[in-house]
Simulated assay, not measured.
Amino acid sequence: MELNFLKNYFDIIFCDVLISFVTVLAYLLPKRKINSIVGYRTMRSMKDQKNWDFSQRFFFRNWFFVIPVVLLFQVLTLILFDIENIGLIETLSMILFFIYSISLSFITERKLKQLDQ
């Protein structure tokens, strides 16, 4: 059971590293031209180049704030609360990422609307 628990724990860490890596790449190497495949894509962000540049920087810069929160949540649930149900921790982590993404999308859209005015 202990070996399986460690394997699952490393699966969680791998997902965290992957999400962090993609976020860092999107922030450091943003798509310069408006496209419909990669980046933060909404009708407002793709309206013109100014909106596109702003939305890419703003969205991915603010994504850095959720990564430590999720890592702290995972460490607390694994160590302090001694929760052995890795599936529950993974699910709750993904819910945190999802809620943050939706919230950040609304905030980014509000900032883009202010930028247009």
Rank of each mutant, 00 (worst) to 15 (best):
L3T: 15
N4F: 15
F5N: 15
N8V: 12
F10A: 04
I12E: 05
I13G: 06
I13P: 03
C15S: 15
V17N: 03
L18Y: 10
I19T: 12
S20F: 09
V24I: 11
L25T: 10
L28A: 11
L29F: 10
K31Y: 07
K31D: 12
K33Y: 04
K33S: 08
N35T: 06
G39N: 02
R41L: 00
R41A: 01
R41N: 06
M43Y: 14
M43G: 14
M43A: 14
S45F: 00
M46K: 00
K47P: 02
N51E: 07
W52S: 07
D53I: 13
R57E: 09
F58M: 04
W63Y: 15
F64V: 08
F64T: 04
F65C: 07
F65W: 13
F65D: 07
V66Q: 07
V66M: 13
I67Y: 04
I67A: 04
I67E: 05
V70A: 01
L72D: 11
L72M: 12
L76T: 09
T77F: 13
L78A: 10
L78E: 11
D82G: 15
E84Q: 15
E84L: 13
E90H: 08
T91D: 06
L92C: 06
S93W: 00
I95G: 00
Y100C: 02
L104A: 01
F106G: 06
F106E: 03
F106I: 08
F106H: 02
I107N: 02
T108I: 00
E109M: 05
K113F: 07
Q114M: 09
Q114G: 05
D116C: 08
